[in-house]
Simulated assay, not measured.
Amino acid sequence: MAKMIREVMTRDVEVINPSDTLRDAAEKMRSLNVGPLPVCDGQRVLGMITDRDIVVRGIALGKDPNSTQVSDVMSSGIEYCFDDDNADDILNRMKEKQIRRFIVVDRNKKLVGIVALGDLSGEVSEQKVGEALEGISEPSGPVI
């Protein structure tokens, strides 16, 4: 029987506020040894910021990390899944959308965790994980 996302997700996810600075986000990522942080206003998920967002949308464009807010470079409109979704279905969505992680919310859309491709690797067939990784890893074009 296929597992639900709540059985494999990471709980107690650290978040960051949209008004925090890029430096605050980078320091939190460093101390937690993570690349992504959900951006939340209270319990409402507004988006996600990654170490790559900080570099590509912030530093590379000359934005001051000490004064630029997380909300200025974060990704909004992010993909999410529900904690009672089927792990196989989410793996297929990862492949289709070419993303390695999903924010996990409950049916009230309250943040309850995060699930990454690695979390699913021991829960579904190796072939399915390999196919998803292949789809996720297809190169995209340069930003113009």
Rank of each mutant, 00 (worst) to 15 (best):
V105W: 13
G130D: 15
N33E: 13
K97N: 15
V105D: 02
D88I: 00
E134C: 12
P65W: 09
E131D: 09
L61M: 15
G62D: 14
K63N: 15
G77R: 15
V55P: 13
A25D: 04
E138R: 15
K95Y: 01
I99W: 12
M94R: 04
M48A: 15
S71W: 04
S19T: 14
A116L: 01
E27V: 06
V55W: 01
L120Q: 11
A25Q: 07
S75H: 09
E123L: 07
F102M: 11
V105R: 10
E27P: 00
M29N: 11
M4Y: 13
A60Y: 08
M29R: 12
I136A: 07
V15M: 03
P36D: 14
L22P: 14
G122C: 00
G130M: 08
V104P: 03
V13W: 09
E7V: 03
K110G: 05
E7F: 05
K110P: 00
D64Y: 07
V112R: 04
V13C: 05
R93W: 13
V73R: 07
C81A: 10
N33R: 15
T21R: 07
C40T: 10
C81L: 07
D64F: 07
R57N: 09
V55C: 11
K28C: 00
D72C: 09
G122E: 05
D106S: 04
I136H: 11
V143P: 01
L117F: 01
R6W: 03
D88E: 08
I49E: 09
S31M: 04
D24C: 00
P18V: 00
S140T: 11
A87T: 13
D119C: 12
R11E: 14
L133Y: 08
P38H: 10
C40L: 05
D83T: 00
K95A: 15
L91Y: 01
V15H: 08
I49W: 08
I103F: 02
D51P: 09
R100N: 09
V45G: 09
D85S: 11
K109C: 06
L46R: 02
L32D: 15
I54M: 10
T10I: 09
D41M: 08
A87H: 00
Q43F: 03
G35Y: 08
P38W: 03
I54V: 15
I59S: 06
V56L: 13
V39R: 08
E138Y: 10
S19I: 05
P36V: 14
I5Q: 12
E96W: 12
V143E: 02
N86D: 14
D106H: 01
D72T: 09
L117W: 04
M9P: 03
E138G: 11
S67P: 06
G141Q: 01
E96R: 09
R44Y: 07
S19D: 12
G130F: 13
V70E: 08
A87R: 00
Q69R: 06
I78Y: 15
